[in-house]
Design a protein around this nucleic acid. Sequence first.
RNA 1: GCGUCGGUGCCCGAGCGGCCCAAGGGAACGGCCUGCAAAGCCGUACAGUCGCGGGUUCAAAUCCCGCCCGGCGCUCCA
Length: 458
Amino acid sequence: MKLYDTLQGEIVEFVPRNDGEVSLYACGPTVYSHPHLGHARQAMTYDIVRRYFEWSGYRVHHVANVTDIDDNIINRALAEDTTEPEIAKYWEAVYIEAMDSLNILPPHDRPHATEFVEEMVDFIEVLMNNGSAYATDSGVYLRVRSVEGYGDLVHRTPDEIAEHGLNRVEVDETKEDPLDFALWKAAKPGEPTWDSPWGPGRPGWHIECVAMSLGILGDGFDIHGGGNDLVFPHHTNERAEAIAANRTFSKYWIHNAMLNIGGEKMSKSLNNFNTIADVLAEDPANARALRLIMLQTHYRKDIEINDAVMAQARDGIKRLDAMVRKATGVGIDLSSTERDAEAIDRFRSAMDHDFGTPDAMATVFELVRDANGAIDAGKSAATPLALTAIELANVFGLEVGVADVASEGDSDIEAMVAARVDAKANKDFAEADRIRDELREMGITVEDTATGPIWHRS
RNA sequence: GCGUCGGUGCCCGAGCGGCCCAAGGGAACGGCCUGCAAAGCCGUACAGUCGCGGGUUCAAAUCCCGCCCGGCGCUCCA
């Protein structure tokens, strides 16, 4: 297994901390607004990584946090005249519902920042005691220049960062160095606060993820992931905190690319985002189509989403479903354990090279084509081909063959399909076509096969 | 400006120095199948400059250098 490690800047061999186990921490959302397709990409990327590891026999410990206290939440609570916990609770529920609707597996742990404040305070105390941090009236800060290798993750030196990156934000005059960042923010009026040795306040953004990842997964956990927009400052600063505290942080860093719309990153500030709920409301089939789009593009490459791309992907999914219908129609035993070992090898080697999902999906579609051919030709090879295609597609959570294949018990439809068979037998094609049209208006598609008609909801 | 990832057919998009006259998906065209369809299979046209220009190599879409174009990041914020 090889993967691209952001820190080393190249594809490297993946050697887990413990044999047969993978510990994965992926930064989750700040819950204060609608989850959009950018969140979907991030979550789906690690969902696919996790599913693949599990299918490969690893025991995976997947942690994804929820940031439930930050400026955005505070502002929203203020604007809506409610409390921060109410805002966070509401939007977390929305987020989880969206994830469920995209068939994204819940992480094994979903820690909340507000539940880890004590650990964060302890962590900051370590940094204070060893001289890496200092307190001012406005908060507690990390002495960035004292950290060995600060900026390695973004492949820049502190001087380069200072030279090019400090013109955007007003610099707090109490800081020793403009590069230093907040570990703890002193309380401001009206904000929720927690007690600390440095007075009431709330934790800085980066300390949350350090406390939660190390707290749950332990030192030297395997993979830290997130969107590539987090490489700096968030992940760079997380890493700096861990180093300053003499803790061993993640062994590998992986970052997914952005999802763009109209040539730009989808984001709330640009107001060009599509919420997951809206996209699914347009067409429920978009859930699986979205997953196929993610799979057919490498996770480190930007995706440009538009209606045409969505439509293409929906058609791709239909091709997978159609094969299963066909296989079911000719009586292939879906519980068979026959597999095409050679295809599985190709699938594995694609995935083992930095999660080469596009190549892996190509193997799945080749299996689909060969399975269709074998079914048409009445060959017994159809069984392993079809079942391997289904298994591999479902490793990725595509739920092939799960959706609408077994729409049992619809006796009215069965009766109409049977009536059409009779009409055809009597050469009454006008009647047969009328029934087919009527079914189509009901959202039912009938397909004739060598062994009789099959139907499905379109 | 600096860092980083990228620029491949009509569209999306793989390609990890020779198996690439370039995978897979979508759309198109022709054939087979069908009462007609749908689904499927077979075949065809699309990439003949793999952004542009140099270079390394017996061999480059793949490595190196320069340039052009685009995404993301560049501080207490997803």
